[in-house]
Amino acid sequence: MSMPSLSSPSRSGLRRVGRAHLFIGLLLPLWTPLLAVPEGPKLGVSITQESILPLDISVFPEGTGLPPGKGTAVEGKMQFEALCQGCHGVKGSGGDAEELVGRSPLNGSRPDQTVGNYWPYATTIFDYIRRAMPLNAPLSLSNDQVYALTAYLLYLNGIVTETSEMNATT
């Protein structure tokens, strides 16, 4: 293994840091880009936002990042029974893995914190299932499968109907 070559910071770089800290300390407690940062060799390789798309699997609350595709709880039920039920239990309850269904009030004495009463967020569920489930084969589900499973979990928790379609705009 070859050792990386090391470059020492230039004197001008060090002075730049000192001045920047003084400036920030006196005037600007808020973050301001580019000021208090030591100099690096700037070796990062430019990429386009498009080239990153295959890696970008983030889904945000307003729906940014949701891919094309669709699914309903009816379809999701079949996927769930085939892929998820072994760990999460029949209808998402009573398995070894996380309890997914339940609507007991959260101010009760021992509430299960489920999709139904604690995290009923479609984009969160989509984001998590797509990246992490099933445990033995993450990133293996099609977009339609993930939409259908998301719909099924929301249906089991009484949030959507059995035939409501989940897609990038719903």
Binding site: P4, S5, L6, S7, P9, P38, E39, G40, P41, L43, G44, V45, S46, I47, T48, Q49, I52
Partner: peptide, 15 residues
């Protein structure tokens, strides 16, 4: 403004 990617070899040159 400039999306970038780093390899480890590149990162080892950084302070």
């Amino acid at each position: 403004s400039k999306p970038i990617q780093f390899s480890l070899e590149q990162l080892f040159r950084y302070p």
